[in-house]
């Protein structure tokens, strides 16, 4: 699969502060790409460079193998983290204005807005002013304005903040649908569970440097620690525990069970097969729980950032 966006060796300084240091990122076409990193790492700067709000000091950005230029503005939909609308302007007028700035004709914008307003069941807001709406309502309108011009690349910075769970879910479904329709999505958030749920690829930026990137599944493989969570019922749990700790590296585990099982995390040495472990365990008692521990994005995030310090 080809890449929609290629960021190559991009650096940016603000005075003496280096906000991005030779960062390269490739975003495959049709993927949902998670851009992660602690506060102040440089994510927003990178997003602003892609949006041509700030210019990089060095390095290049290509969209569809074409050097980033003014014509790409209409190909990108950007929902910034710091977002808002004109307070005293009517919802409809405002949405029309913003859509026209993205290059849509007035009639086209009107037609599409009608469609989206109906779809999100906000049709009767057209003549209301933003200051009469709640924060979540305003966010919905902002979402519509971001996707209205059917951009190839959608950039969402914390898209779910300000939404209740129902609306957050609605927006999540819309994002997935947009991806199915061919859009590529960059997704910047601190909510790791949504990264886990949505993203195919991720990049982790810390202190102006990219420290990790790739397919989420590959990264997880890379970070797996060959550890299995085991629940087993033996005649004497204490003896079994002692026996196991002599053979493997074990640590206490914590999960819910129905009976009084022995709960352990068992780490296999490299090359050892989980089947051998399972076979061994069945000879010792009744196995009720056997799960490979897959590192969560949260764990990977925390571990990588800590190691990087």
């Amino acid at each position: 699969m080809s890449n929609l966006l290629e960021v190559n060796q991009v650096s940016k300084n603000f005075g003496n502060f280096r906000a991005l240091n030779n960062v390269s990122v490739s975003i495959p076409k049709g993927s949902i790409f998670g851009l992660l990193g602690p506060n102040g790492a440089g994510k927003t700067t990178l997003i602003r460079i892609i949006n041509q709000i700030t210019m990089p000091d060095s390095g290049t950005v290509h969209i569809d193998n074409e050097l980033l230029n003014e014509n790409h503005i209409k190909d990108i939909g950007y929902l910034p983290e710091e977002r808002g609308l004109y307070k005293s302007m009517k919802v409809g007028d405002q949405a029309l204005y913003l859509a026209q700035l993205k290059g849509l004709s007035k009639s086209e914008a009107k037609e599409r807005l009608k469609y989206w307003f109906e779809r999100l069941e906000i049709g009767d807001w057209w003549n209301k002013k933003i200051q009469e709406l709640s924060k979540g309502m305003a966010q919905k309108i902002q979402f519509v304005v971001t996707v209205l011009h059917q951009p190839k690349l959608l950039i969402f910075d914390e898209p779910f903040s300000g939404f209740d769970p129902i609306n957050a879910n609605l927006i999540k479904d819309e994002i997935l649908r947009l991806r199915e329709d061919g859009a590529t999505v960059i997704f910047s958030t601190h909510r790791m569970e949504s990264v886990e749920e949505l993203c195919d690829d991720i990049a982790l930026i810390n202190k102006s440097n990219k420290i990790l990137d790739g397919k989420l599944i590959d990264i997880k493989r890379q970070y797996k620690i060959n550890t299995f969570e085991v629940g087993i019922k033996a005649n004497d749990n204490a003896i079994l525990k002692h026996e196991l700790s002599e053979k493997f590296a074990v640590s206490p585990a914590n999960f819910k069970t129905l009976d009084n099982e022995l709960k352990l995390n068992i780490q296999l040495s490299n090359g050892a097969s989980p089947n051998d472990l399972l076979n061994y365990l069945t000879t010792k008692g009744e196995v009720s729980h056997f799960v490979e521990l897959i590192p969560s994005v949260n764990d990977i995030f925390i571990q990588t950032v800590k190691n990087n310090q």
Binding site: P80, E82, R83, G84, L101
Partner: peptide, 16 residues
């Protein structure tokens, strides 16, 4: 100042 405080500015300058 109004555009700044209402935070619409970033949306706008991503198009203009």
């Amino acid at each position: 100042i109004e555009e700044k405080t209402s935070r619409i500015i970033e949306v706008i300058i991503s198009s203009v």
